[in-house]
Amino acid sequence: MNPVSREKIMKRLLLIAVALSLIILPVILIWVGYNGSGIISIEFLTSRPRLFEYGGIYPQIMGSVYLVSLCTLFGAPLGIASAIYLAEYAPDNRITQSVRFFTETLAGMPSIVIGLFGLEFLVFYLQLKTSLLAGAISLSFMMLPWTIRASEEAIKTVPQEYRAASLALGATKWQTIVNVVIPAAMPGILTGVLLGVGKAVGETAVVWLTAGSGLEAFVPRSLSSPTGSLPMYIYLLATQAHTVEGVQRAYGASLVLLIMFLGVSVSALMARNYYLRRLGN
């Protein structure tokens, strides 16, 4: 075969692979949307589950919202502070290198291992019980390295000239960071945090081991209440429901979860654009 016609065939094969990777997202979105939209109603979104397979998913929605908000409250400030240290202060020495190495190790840790650790350390050792607090803290362990990575990258892309200009005006290092570097890095930091939030919303294994079984039919009343969440609820119904109603609810909950996830992703993009516009770029 001559090289030119082989070239054509190869290009076709490439396009088949591209089509396969491209088709996954729309197929899953349409499948969930098609099967899930039928059951969505005000009642479904605002009432509690009954008899496992009936009723609404209000406690699961709120459980997910609480878990993720608390997780962000713990994880985001810590992650941003770590990133500031690594990007602005860290001298290039053994200590910094090992801090970086451990951050990467944490990023690569399977979520079930983080769940196991949360179960042993938070639930049993610190006696937080299977609860909202234990779940949120465990989730924040998972989110932390991603926030650090994204924020560090964002801080590092702030032009050195901004820092020089601020220091030359007599600002201290910290004043420069707070007033110039962080605002300039905000779009990247925000996007990073929101992507972390998106990850936390869909995380199942960690909340399974630390937050609750997913059957909880009530909104958590305190930090020590066991807390159901959408992913756990979907898992339980998908694998253990016996009725059409149960499966329908799994579709409905999946649709709500996907909308929450896409909502977070879209607001990540919008926040980035808003800041970029305000900065005049």
Binding site: E161, Y162, A165, A168, V180, P183, A184, N281
Partner: peptide
Amino acid sequence: VYDLRKRVGMVFQRPNPFPM
């Protein structure tokens, strides 16, 4: 050094206004 830099203004090679 911060008081010193308050007495000495500096202009850089490329314009570097803050993103404000």
